[in-house]
Each structure stands twice: as structure tokens, then as C-alpha cells.
Amino acid sequence: MKRAAGSALATCAGLLAAAIAGNAVAFDLKGLTDKLDLDKLSEGVEKLQYATGKVPRTKEIELGEELSAGLLGAVKLVGDTQVQTYVNQLGRWLAEQTSRNQKKWPWRFGVLDTRTVNAFAAPGGHVFITRGLFVLLESEAELAGVLAHEIGHVLEKHHLQALQKSTRGEVFKDLMVKSSEKNREAIEKLTGAGMALYARGLEREDEYAADRLGVVIAARAGYDPFALLNVLTTIDSLDPHDPDLALMFSTHPPTRERLAQLDRAMEGKLDGYAAQSAPDARFLQIRNRLLQ
């Protein structure tokens, strides 16, 4: 008992000493910060974050909007509100199953009016599918698989990372500068680099990762995750010399390799979610509108 009291006393003394020392440090720190321009310090920290890959949400969305405007400059949206509403509601439901399910993430989905077979994503939550790919699909679950694959690219920030790599993060620092002119310049440079990235494609590993994420997101949303494999099978069956497929084939790993990798990754793990009932009537109705 006596010993316990003694050790408690010793602990108290230790804590007191630590507290005094802590105060001393705090006083020193205050002296230091008084001499520093805090604005400059925080700007420097943010610049450092940009260079290392941490782009704040608002900037990511802004960049994604610019890249989307670029894509939409190359090809317009299908001018059918029913079609666009359908993909946006489906897309939003898929996004609900991810870490970016809050209202502050403005997910936007668009069907592009081109016969080219492809799908795209842009940072911040922008996803596109071409009319050419949409009409090849056979069910809502297949569409969910395609959209979820693109959502995967957004979540993993594949485009942001590729742009940071290709511009060595230099332009990203300018995103933060207060001068609106420099900011504008940075956005323009990044948009240019982004369009070149769409023409060039992401890393193979990024595509495989998006495939794996896509099937999981689709399964979480209640869809048959195996539908994405069906889409890949359809794509694999298309004429590789068709000019409408040239861009997709040149910017993605061989379809058969994607099928093999995805099938292996899923084997046994998602079997319980297969063959879920799919609401295909509304899907077919929308697809018919695109076929007209």
C-alpha cells in the first residue's frame, strides 16, 4: 500500500515535469510562429501536397469539369433527357456504394453521341459512355459494370496520378497560386495533358484495378457482378480492325487478358452475388431510344 502511494507520487512528479517541459516547447513554438508568415507557410504546405498527389476536392472537381468540357468538345452528349437521366440515376446509385457517396461529390454521367465504342472517366466524379458501347450491352447489369469500372478510375484517382506523373507535379503547384491568371494557365495546361492522356490511355494496372473495383461496386448495388465479364466477352468478339474500336483497343490491355485476370480475381469470392434479378425492361427501353 505504501509502495503504491509512493509510485503514484513519483508518477505525479513525472507528469508535472513533462508538463513544464511541454509548456517550454509551446512557448518556444509560439515565438517561432510569431516570426513566420502563416499564410505563406500554409501555401507551401498545400503546394507540397499537390506535388505528392493530394489535390483538394474542389480542385479535383474543377479539373474534372475542364477535362469533361474537353471531351464534350470532341463529341457531344446524346440530346435525350430520358437517356441521360437514366444513366445519372443508375450511376448515382452505384456511387452510393463507394467512399464518395456524400452530396459534396457531384457525380455526373453522360452518354456521348458517337459510334465509337468506349467509356471515359474524369476526376471529381465524371463518367461517360459512348452510344456505340451502350447499344452493344444487353442488360442494366452490364451497363452498371461499365459505369462502375469508370467510377473505379475516379475513386483510385488514376487520371490525377497519371497527370501528376506526366507533368512532374509542376503544374499542380500552380493550381494553388492565388493569381487567377496563373491558375487559369495551370488548368489549361492540365486540360491539354488530360486530353493527350485520353488519347494515350492509362497504365494497364489501372485498368485491371478498375475492373476489380467495378465488379465489387456493381455487386454492392445489387447487380450481377459477372455482367462486366459479359461486356468484355462482347468487346473481345468485335473486329479489332474496326476504326470505331481503335481508340479503346489502343488504350486498354488486351481484352482477353482483362477477362482472364478478372475471372481469376473473382473466382469463388463473388459467386454468392451472381444471377441477381435485373430490371431489364427499363434498360431495353432506353437502349431502344439510342437505336432509333
Partner: peptide, 13 residues
């Protein structure tokens, strides 16, 4: 169509 060239030449809309 939507080719690599068309993407690179696109002006934001």
C-alpha cells in the same frame, strides 16, 4: 467518331 487525333484537337465546350 472519336479518335485520338480528335481528342487532342478538341476545344472545351
Amino acid at each position: 467518331g472519336l479518335s485520338a487525333e480528335e481528342l487532342k484537337a478538341a476545344r472545351p465546350d
